[in-house]
């Protein structure tokens, strides 16, 4: 077998720079996706038919089409036919955020709906408003139940962010492709990139495991 660890060590720093971009993209998509996802989740359980339908249409549309296609629409479609030109970075963040918002919204909605109806009633019966009850009573309890599926979602997002390599975003995946093209050492380069992805996903697993245990106090 022809495998040279020296090559792994030589290109690791360059790949690490790509990994930093991957982390930036994922972090931004997580923040945007969570904020947007919370609003979509609340909208999808609204009593108002129109608001509810719009929210459910959004999650249906985004979850029912490939992320790769969504990225292409934003990066190639928008500038050509709508006159909206985005940098690769902006297009990547937008696509990943819109995509993760739909998945996060479903996770938050399911968690909210899993909370006993009596909780909302008890909160309303002492005179709390709907939003006070949501913020102080329902969401803190739902939060605990969201942690494990959100952890999975964020890991999936981190891995799927490699698709932005196809819209000329130089992330970890794209860096690896470029290194491979110049060295023709696919095993060493992709193995090193894989190790970096593993490092990042393991970080998520461990962090969310801690969160889960810390939130278990009242049970």
């Amino acid at each position: 077998m022809d495998f040279d660890f020296a090559i792994v060590w030589k290109y690791l720093p360059v790949l690490a720079k790509g990994a930093v971009t991957t982390v930036e993209l994922t972090a931004l998509a997580i923040v945007n996706g969570t904020v947007l996802g919370l609003f979509i989740a609340l909208a999808s359980i609204s009593k108002n038919w129109l608001i509810r339908s719009l929210a459910r249409f959004y999650t249906w549309l985004i979850r029912g089409t490939p992320l790769l296609l969504q990225l292409f629409v934003i990066y190639y479609g928008l500038p050509l036919q709508m006159g909206i030109k985005l940098s690769p970075f902006a297009a990547a963040v937008t696509g990943l955020s819109i995509n993760s918002a739909a998945y996060v919204a479903e996770i938050i909605r399911a968690a909210i709906e899993s909370i006993d109806k009596g909780q909302m009633e008890a909160a309303r019966s002492i005179g709390m408003s709907y939003f006070q009850a949501m913020r102080r009573i329902i969401l803190p309890q739902a939060y605990r139940r969201m942690i494990p599926p959100l952890g999975n979602e964020f890991i999936a997002l981190l891995k799927d962010s490699s698709l932005v390599a196809t819209i000329s975003m130089v992330d970890l995946m794209r860096t690896a492709q470029q290194m491979y093209a110049t060295t023709f050492r696919p095993m060493e380069i992709f193995l090193a990139a894989g190790a970096l992805y593993l490092l990042l996903t393991t970080f998520f697993t461990v962090t969310f495991g801690h969160l889960e245990r810390r939130l278990a106090v009242y049970e």
Binding site: G118, Q119, E121, A122, R124, G127, Y218, E219
Partner: peptide, 20 residues
């Protein structure tokens, strides 16, 4: 409604305490 409800105390069969 919130003001009226705050003037009407309610106790439920299944307590509905806030577990957190």
């Amino acid at each position: 409604l919130n003001r009226m409800r705050s003037e009407i105390g309610m106790v439920f069969q299944r307590f509905n305490l806030f577990p957190h």
